[in-house]
């Protein structure tokens, strides 16, 4: 069991938000979109995190927003990871023309500025549902993972156990997915977590710019409405701080978890805490 403080801290944060998204809506009653007469009220017993301009409960919005933000993050990271595994491993293993073509594709997506592309793509989407936003983010975000996995595959391709599998008659796809893929799990895990983080941020950015479906409640759309209604100017800090903090916290959690996995995979990165020395002759 890893006893790394980074993994524990990151894991606790992540589990907290996953629980919030899963069971939060059961505990917090109230419709996040329901408007009431009490607009822009500060935190109180009735509304723990206050209300928005149109009297919606901020706590309910944060809780429901967690579902959308995490959902988009996980879904698009899943799509992006599958894409990067396919492109990176097949290109790295096959070499030659296949690798050239796939590398070119990867490089194109690497140099394309992601946010403007996402904005353009999102602008032309027929529907702006959670799935299509996730797909757009995945399409622009798979290239980093593919690049890393291709490099890793290039080094693994020449290893003796891959040659041995080849010499014992294994087919190429079997070598790629049964011999090379499992060995790359730590790399895939870190790249997956990094993509989740990037996707959550991208979703928040898109929503903040008003390019996602504004009728779904996510942390990003909360910030969008807070901004549009000058929450900062009127001093309604309870409106924009909770979603902003949530995004920052989950980012920190995913980052910590990522560093922790890195340390397991590469022990040289481990932070060494100075051991407290036992004092001899104490009490003299």
């Amino acid at each position: 069991m890893p006893r790394s403080p980074k993994i524990i801290a990151g894991g606790v944060i992540l589990v907290f938000f996953i629980l919030l998204a899963l069971v939060g809506p059961v505990l917090v009653d109230g419709d996040p979109t329901k408007t009431t007469d009490v607009g822009l009220a500060g935190p109180s017993a009735a509304h723990w995190l206050g209300t928005t301009q149109s009297g919606q409960d901020v706590l309910a919005q944060v809780v429901y927003g967690a579902r959308v933000s995490l959902g988009v993050g996980l879904l698009s990271a899943l799509i992006a990871t599958v894409l990067s595994i396919v492109v990176g491993l097949i290109g790295g293993y096959a070499g030659g023309v296949v690798d050239e073509v796939l590398s070119l594709l990867t490089n194109i997506f690497l140099v394309l500025p992601a946010l403007p592309l996402v904005i353009v793509l999102a602008g032309y989407l027929p529907s702006r549902g959670v799935t299509s936003v996730a797909a757009v983010i995945a399409v622009t975000g798979w290239a980093w993972g593919a690049r890393v996995l291709r490099a890793q595959t290039l080094t693994l391709r020449g290893r003796d156990y891959v040659q041995a599998a080849k010499a014992s008659g294994e087919r190429a796809w079997r070598i790629i997915f049964a011999e090379i893929l499992p060995v790359e799990f730590p790399v895939i895990a870190t790249s997956f977590l990094a993509t989740v983080l990037a996707a959550i941020l991208a979703e928040a950015g898109l929503s903040f710019l008003g390019l996602a479906n504004l009728s779904t409640v996510s942390w990003g759309t909360m910030l969008y409405f807070a901004q549009n209604n000058q929450a900062l100017l009127v001093g309604a800090w309870w409106w924009f701080i909770p979603p902003g903090l949530c995004i920052a916290l989950i980012g920190a959690g995913l980052g910590l978890l990522n560093f922790g996995i890195d340390e397991i995979a590469n022990p040289r990165l481990r932070t060494v805490l100075p051991k407290r020395r036992k004092r001899f002759g104490a009490g003299r």
Partner: peptide
């Protein structure tokens, strides 16, 4: 069939 030189490298660690 072939037996490789380095048994530390010729078996997949996974």
């Amino acid at each position: 069939q072939m037996v490789f030189q380095d048994p530390f490298a010729s078996l997949n660690p996974f």
